[in-house]
């Protein structure tokens, strides 16, 4: 049988040592809701599991200036119910609660959810071609069953959608990701953390194999409190997004002073739309301009056989999110 080492790391340094020793074969494990699933399918086959649950990364604390620092091990359910998150970043709380099931949210961690792998059926079935799982093997989804797949940020090597709801909210909130390696810490803007597939769909983020996510900082924001997450799906709960939108607005009277817009279900990575934001700023918060922003957000969308409906649905989803946030729905 395949030999699997399990190591419970006492601190970050110990975890990083283990990860660095065999960076291609080791995997950190938090809640395990995604990793164990993929190991059972033989999609991920680590030789060493480095359990990081003992690391002191389960805190949510205020940082100077009013932002929040969230530890990588904070469980989705705890984060969703945190009073400061609910008060200042309702979009994040809503996105978390829109995802998975209560049991999964009780286990899933912030860090793990940032790195959640795609739900593409061809990625999960090892008998099928998948450039993400096996670089160079091809992409069976391009002309296969792609109803759930991305229309933005796609390439001819991969169209797998990023499945996380939480990520969409973090993309809208100007979050930054804290990463620690043996050589030290660095911070990456959340919207630069994930990579579009391009020619290397196997490379999903800027995180190096010997690095750990330690947390996320949400900056203070005057308008994140006016924020909403709208998710459209095939059943009322426990379903991945067909489309979703995370929106934050700052209004001056009825005019949009600032906007944050991110989309889910349609991007190969959590999809921040600066185009939509630009279309909104300085304009009246009304349906006409929301529709214009939605047009801008989906410009350049490249649908395939089964997911063509997502382009218009994403626009409608964004208009709904903007309308709810502006209080005109």
């Amino acid at each position: 049988m395949r030999h699997l080492d399990y190591v419970a790391a006492a601190d970050a340094n110990a975890a990083l040592q283990r990860l660095s020793a065999k960076p291609q074969e080791a995997a950190p494990i938090g809640g395990g809701t995604n990793l164990l699933d993929l190991m059972k399918l033989h999609v991920q086959n680590p030789a060493v599991l480095v359990d990081i649950n003992g690391l002191p990364l389960s805190q949510v604390r205020e940082v100077e200036g009013g932002g929040l620092r969230i530890g990588a091990l904070v469980r989705n359910s705890d984060l969703a119910q945190h009073p400061l998150v609910r008060e200042r970043y309702p979009v994040l709380s809503e996105a978390l609660l829109a995802g998975a099931s209560p049991q999964l949210r009780n286990m899933a961690t912030l860090g793990g959810n940032i790195l959640q792998r795609t739900r593409c059926a061809y990625f999960r079935d090892v008998s099928q071609a998948c450039n993400k799982r096996e670089p160079g093997s091809g992409c069976a989804a391009l002309d296969g069953y792609n109803r759930m797949h991305a229309v933005l940020g796609v390439s001819d090597k991969c169209i797998a959608a990023n499945p996380s709801d939480m990520n969409v909210a973090l993309a809208a909130l100007d979050a930054s990701v804290h990463v620690q390696g043996l050589k030290g810490e660095r911070s990456v803007p959340f919207i630069d953390f994930h990579l579009v597939p391009g020619t290397h769909p196997d490379k999903e983020s800027v995180l190096q194999p010997e690095e750990l996510i330690t947390g996320v900082t949400l900056p203070a924001s005057g308008f994140a409190a006016r924020s909403r997450y709208v998710k459209v799906r095939d059943r009322a709960a426990y379903a991945f997004a067909l489309t979703s939108a995370a929106v934050a607005l700052e209004l001056e009277g009825t005019t949009v002073k600032a906007a944050r817009v991110a989309l889910g279900g349609v991007g190969t990575k959590p999809w921040r739309s600066k185009e939509a934001e630009a279309a909104l700023v300085g304009k009246p918060a009304d349906e006409v301009h929301f529709k214009a922003a939605a047009e801008a957000a989906l410009k350049g969308a490249k649908p395939r056989t089964h997911n063509a409906f997502k382009v218009d649905l994403a626009r409608r989803t964004l208009v709904r999110a903007l309308s709810l946030t502006a209080g005109i729905a």
């Binding site: 739900r119 059926a121 079935d125 069953y145 059943r235 009322a236 709960a237 379903a239």
Partner: peptide
């Protein structure tokens, strides 16, 4: 009526819906 369907890949004749996260049956709020 609303959600059950298994997708058969026309190239391979393989059912690509293979788990209960993708094969939807109603949950309580449905």
């Amino acid at each position: 009526a609303l959600m059950e369907e298994t997708y058969l890949d026309p190239r391979s004749a393989r059912f690509m819906t293979q788990d209960l996260a993708d094969y939807h049956v109603p949950v309580n709020p449905d």
